[in-house]
Design a protein around this nucleic acid. Sequence first.
DNA 1: CGTGTTCCTGACCATTTGGTCAATAAAGGA
DNA 2: TCCTTTATTGACCAAATGGTCAGGAACACG
Lengths: 205, 205
Amino acid sequence: MADQPDAPLTRIQQKNRDLILEGALTAFSINGFRGATLDQIARAAGLSKPNVLYYFASKDDIHKTLLTTLLDMWLAPMIRIDPQGEPLAEVMGYVRAKLDMSRRFPRESRLFAYEILQGAPHLTEILGGSLRQIVDTAAAILQGWMDQGRLARVDPHHLIFSIWALTQHYADFDVQVRAVLGPGHDPFIEADPFIENLYRRMLAV
Amino acid sequence: MADQPDAPLTRIQQKNRDLILEGALTAFSINGFRGATLDQIARAAGLSKPNVLYYFASKDDIHKTLLTTLLDMWLAPMIRIDPQGEPLAEVMGYVRAKLDMSRRFPRESRLFAYEILQGAPHLTEILGGSLRQIVDTAAAILQGWMDQGRLARVDPHHLIFSIWALTQHYADFDVQVRAVLGPGHDPFIEADPFIENLYRRMLAV
DNA sequence: CGTGTTCCTGACCATTTGGTCAATAAAGGA
DNA sequence: TCCTTTATTGACCAAATGGTCAGGAACACG
């Protein structure tokens, strides 16, 4: 189990930890933290339950590891907004990246959705800490563009919230979207031009 | 317990069922279905656990009753869209009504959010049935206005999705929004002009 | 006041579930 | 090969949890 936290992992450790995190991501994203069981996770990972607990101290540990590991990936597109770029193109690039992530990583989206719904017990410090800084930085860039008259003036923080809401909706509420649209629709393909048009019209000077 | 399903409720039955549903709404909206316990619900309602199960057959029964009872209220604003009204005003009225509901009924919003995230085990028929019909009706009205050139042309279904996403985001992800904004902000008050501006610019002809 | 119905509860039960542990098997390295 | 370290597991445990039940309290009503 956990010797030195900085000890390099053996090949077996690396592989099994990955298997567990992969299975746990599926389990947590379907049923949430409370709803997912160690048995489910173990089965999804192809390991026995005690063996899962040999690699992670607790169910909570798995969950926290997943969240913190995936958060960087989840926030990466926002960091790539380039202050030197063309404003509208930068925003549209971010929007498209987020929508693409919702399509390709719906499990991750739901994992975070459950966590935030729950009151973010594992992420509170991060939300008000590093996440807030990242958002503030992006908001400052957007504000700068607006001050230069290169982007229509809107509240930059709520602009960012709107991008999160619109894109993650298609991952988190997938069943509802599909049920309402009926068969023969690809929600993501249809959403793309709609959302693009939305931001173009709102942000054009 | 369940005598005739159509038997009129006594005053005590009415009061206690209401207490239970009220407590359950709080419990389910905080922890989700699996996370909420009958003890929590009983405590929140001020009743003993067996007494709760005297009025409802099971935890599942409480949950299903809550969902179906609240769904009408939740969808009401969409039904009030008036085909005879001024298009932009009707849309803005719906948007404002939804945002107001997120502010006043965050527990209801989270209850549905959990249910949909979970794959809507209790709402699948409704989602593809009556909900779909209501949405299709509203979408047809919107489409009519667009065909008349009284509203900019966008996909009406995704327009509705965007309204849901943007407004419910402030209820469902409240902790995140507040953490990012920091103290001294009222998310709903700030969101109102942002969202209003968004739809005005997107939908103006 | 008496009696039938409704309401309420303490005690109990079966199952699920997160987690432990001693013992065994498999690697790994000299 | 031998021995140390790492992996793995069956059996087990305690707590939590949804639900039951028999009996008692409160109420309604003739």
